[in-house]
Design a protein around this nucleic acid. Sequence first.
DNA 1: AATGAATGAGAATTCATTCAT
DNA 2: AATGAATGAATTCTCATTCAT
Lengths: 216, 216, 216, 216
Amino acid sequence: MPLMNAKKTRSLDKKTQILRAARSVVMDGGFRELQMNAVAAAAGVAVGTIYRYFSSRAELCAAIVSTTSQREVDVLSGIAVAEGAPSQKVRDAVRTFAARAMRGRRLAYGLIFEPIDPEVENTRLHYRRAIARVFETIIREGIAAGEFRALDVEVAGACLVGAFMEGLVGSLAPDTGGEQSREDEIAGAIAELCLAAVALPGNRYLISESAEVGGV
Amino acid sequence: MPLMNAKKTRSLDKKTQILRAARSVVMDGGFRELQMNAVAAAAGVAVGTIYRYFSSRAELCAAIVSTTSQREVDVLSGIAVAEGAPSQKVRDAVRTFAARAMRGRRLAYGLIFEPIDPEVENTRLHYRRAIARVFETIIREGIAAGEFRALDVEVAGACLVGAFMEGLVGSLAPDTGGEQSREDEIAGAIAELCLAAVALPGNRYLISESAEVGGV
Amino acid sequence: MPLMNAKKTRSLDKKTQILRAARSVVMDGGFRELQMNAVAAAAGVAVGTIYRYFSSRAELCAAIVSTTSQREVDVLSGIAVAEGAPSQKVRDAVRTFAARAMRGRRLAYGLIFEPIDPEVENTRLHYRRAIARVFETIIREGIAAGEFRALDVEVAGACLVGAFMEGLVGSLAPDTGGEQSREDEIAGAIAELCLAAVALPGNRYLISESAEVGGV
Amino acid sequence: MPLMNAKKTRSLDKKTQILRAARSVVMDGGFRELQMNAVAAAAGVAVGTIYRYFSSRAELCAAIVSTTSQREVDVLSGIAVAEGAPSQKVRDAVRTFAARAMRGRRLAYGLIFEPIDPEVENTRLHYRRAIARVFETIIREGIAAGEFRALDVEVAGACLVGAFMEGLVGSLAPDTGGEQSREDEIAGAIAELCLAAVALPGNRYLISESAEVGGV
DNA sequence: AATGAATGAGAATTCATTCAT
DNA sequence: AATGAATGAATTCTCATTCAT
């Protein structure tokens, strides 16, 4: 039993190791660069070994999408179900996602937007929807709490995701060289914009006009 | 002279014919499916014929991006420079883009988001930025007119593009089967959300709260 | 009749025009660059027109080899049958060929050496042999006249051709920039070497040892 | 360690196997016939396998030129630096080259003369020059030893290479069917001619006149 | 279980040749 | 007779997948 556990552990380790290598390859060059040879080299294993753990390239892609996205979904879900005002949750969610996405811009982007392989499309869409759904939850709560307008929740969820993804990792700031303050500033601006997109005009969590005028 | 015109016209026709076929291939399967054989088959010409008009696959991709995007940029620019309140322009731009994007969802989406080929990337980014810039123009005008908040214009432009692209052609409504009214409804909701994202709380162009509450 | 003549003349003109264009293309880039489109462009005619005069690319190649080589054969033959000492004829033949080959180095070289197309191989070999045969004639005459050694005439003919072709247009002097004196000098050196290769040691046409030692 | 050696040996074997197959393809039809499919078929491997060992067709060509030529250069160099009279070295070099070139006529010829690919041209010219240089070395030594005339060494080197290559594998004796005595005879005749081309008239290594007159 | 050499289907591109105008 | 657009076979190179060791 301990032996089998050891084996299992070992196997899991190797699988993880491959998955991490694959992820780092995608971070550098997008899914286009996810070639089995490259992953094998990065993971320090043979190509054949990858196939012991992933039955095909498509499955490896799906696994990357799945595990990476799930982590984001989990983090965001944590924010969504916590105590606090929905308005503040929108802010937190966006800023949290921002902070995580800034490292691994390419991967984050690919997960949400880049069409990879017809076979992986379902997985990708699944998690993209999942992320949108977290926002939908917050929005729903915000509407109930009288902080947000009465929106079409699905539309709003998708829009928020699109807005901050494009704001964060899209055409904007393709590489600020890791300048932290600028990234924070952008993340903050995006968060405010997302909040404003759904908030009721009178929402007290909105940055007051005067403050903003003074601030920027 | 008429002969040359005829020739030229013919040539253009064939080029257009290939371009259209290529576009339809992309609409169905994304740029990944843009294989020369497939385009040739779709256009009803031989593979070699494509190369008379486009020197490489990359150039064909770029031509698709370029012509299709330019049309959208033009349409949006027309809205941006017209007379009228910036708030209304945001609405119009989003709704116009929506109406156009609904046909050719996959293509419109691909043009903005899908990484294609390193060689075509510049073209794609160029037009993506161009579309964002149209919105920046409107936003700048809106700030000056006291309708919008004092935003980071670049950030806001990108976010709006992301928001409505994702809202329109992303995970949402992968195919409503062309049900017009539903599509209009969504486009309207997105437009309001985009406007709210940038508008000053007191903006008189915002749909009044009461009306909205009653509406959904 | 004059009309038909005119036509015929025109046709011949066009054929010649194409042939010349083709030759110039080969001069620039070797037979590898002899593409029908390139020839058509250079000749100022349509591709299809080439096929009215030459049934295939191979035939066009053959025609280039044939006409160009025949001219060289004729010139060399003229030297071979003229009055004079065989020793002097070797010198003259080499120097004459040299002068002609220097312009159109690439073509001259290609005619003798470059394998083109299996279909053209026979033509090429024919003329290559023809040039060698001219030298064989001179060599035979020189042996009879007691100026040359009793050589295997065929071997000697081939060697002389190889020697001066390689000396003239091969690795040596890839481009002297048209410096005439240097080219003449090389041609002279090659001619002496070729003569020495076949001459009897006591041959009075050989440059005297003392002169040479002093000269170089 | 033995394992790695075994691996390495195997790899080398396969690379060699491919290289040999490629060489035999060139021997049959020149570099023009060196198509990846043909080589794969001849080597009994898949096309992709070739690319494991040679990154491109050009590199495969270059490898053929390089390895084959280097061997010839080495053999000739051995003769050039050995003890003995320069006159005898010229004879030996030519005869040795002849013996080796007779097998693989087409390849030997191609290595020196056939333009292959712009990318491979440098490699080919490098070895062609290298072979010429070996002869230059001998010639220089012969001049110093008072056996050869005071020649332009570069010109003479090139001419000798051209002479014996053309004599051996050119238009002459396209296939004697492997009749050894005839081949030897030709090689001998070429060697004498090459020697005479550079020797001083009184050179005692030259076959005496009387003997020769009687001989042929 | 791990390896990595071998595989070969597939994709882009070229260019001689044809043929409707 | 001339045109030149169209053709498509041929060729190089790639990379996911397999399998003997």
